[in-house]
Design a protein around this nucleic acid. Structure first.
Length: 259
DNA sequence: ATGGTCGACTTTCGA
């Protein structure tokens, strides 16, 4: 089973690029971030025509996540538990019903800039809530994964120019420590577990020719429970998508699981 | 050395 995550940076602007990539990559499941769309204005038909069912958790203008699947989805839930006052659409879960059930959590973790400040406080508080959900996921002993735009550069090798990011919420020591506290509960970083490539970036800024200079960072991740990691075959990044017409600033990352 | 790009949706914010 092939499962992908892709921060599309606006479904309206990205629909042609998304359809082309779905037809080419044929993921069984695609987890999307930054749909920047209300549920009712999400362009369902052209995606459904490719054989996908769609579950969205959207809001006006910003954020928004979705799961596309060619296999049936069950038990869909929306919103990260732990704060009833949080109205950002950043979390969606569903169970993919194949030969074996796979629980999928799609997330768009807060950017957190500028740091310090209220946006950074929100990021760290959100990560504390994420850790609680992650712990529960492990305790369930399900075949499960969390994937999406984590807005975290885990280590220096995950940035072409780490010195550019030392003051940034994506790379501050406190951000990376919060990431490690989650991973160290018992998750496998799928890209790190399978890739030997030296430059494994998933985001290149639109500004200052970042793509042309390969000034990238790795911030889109797959975290697998042990039961899921036992099924991991490969994890790859579709970097070439960044060089196409009207690209997102992120590219798809995908795993192949023996399921 | 410095300024630079998108998307959504309005005059400006978020990334």
């Amino acid at each position: 089973m092939k499962i992908a995550t892709f921060n599309i940076n606006g479904i309206k602007a990205r629909l042609p690029a998304l359809l082309a990539w779905l037809e080419e990559g044929k993921p069984d499941v695609a987890i999307l971030q930054e749909i920047k769309s209300l549920d009712e204005t999400f362009p369902r038909e052209p995606i459904e025509d490719l054989g996908y069912s769609i579950e969205t958790h959207g809001q006006k203008s910003f954020n928004g996540v979705a799961i596309l699947s060619r296999l049936p989805l069950e038990d869909v839930t929306r919103g990260l538990p732990g704060d009833d006052n949080d109205d950002h659409a950043r979390w969606i879960e569903a169970t993919v019903v194949g030969k074996q059930a796979l629980r999928i959590c799609g997330l768009y973790l807060p950017n957190g800039n500028p740091a310090p400040g209220p946006k950074y406080d929100y990021k760290l508080a959100w990560m504390e809530r994420l850790k609680k959900r992650a712990q529960a996921l492990l305790e369930s002993e399900e075949i499960a994964l969390m994937a999406g735009d984590f807005n975290i550069i885990p280590q220096s090798e995950d940035a072409a120019n780490p010195q550019n990011w030392t003051e940034d919420a994506l790379f501050l020591p406190e951000s990376r420590a919060a990431w490690r506290r989650i991973v160290n509960l018992g998750f496998t970083d799928a890209l790190r577990a399978t890739s030997t490539a030296p430059e494994t970036y998933t985001f290149w800024d639109y500004q200052a020719g970042a793509w042309e200079r390969n000034n990238g960072i790795r911030i889109d991740h797959f975290l697998l429970t042990p039961q899921c990691a036992d099924r991991l075959i490969t994890c790859e990044i579709d970097s070439h998508v960044r060089g196409r017409e009207k690209p997102s600033d992120h590219v798809p990352v995908w795993v192949e699981l023996d399921l």
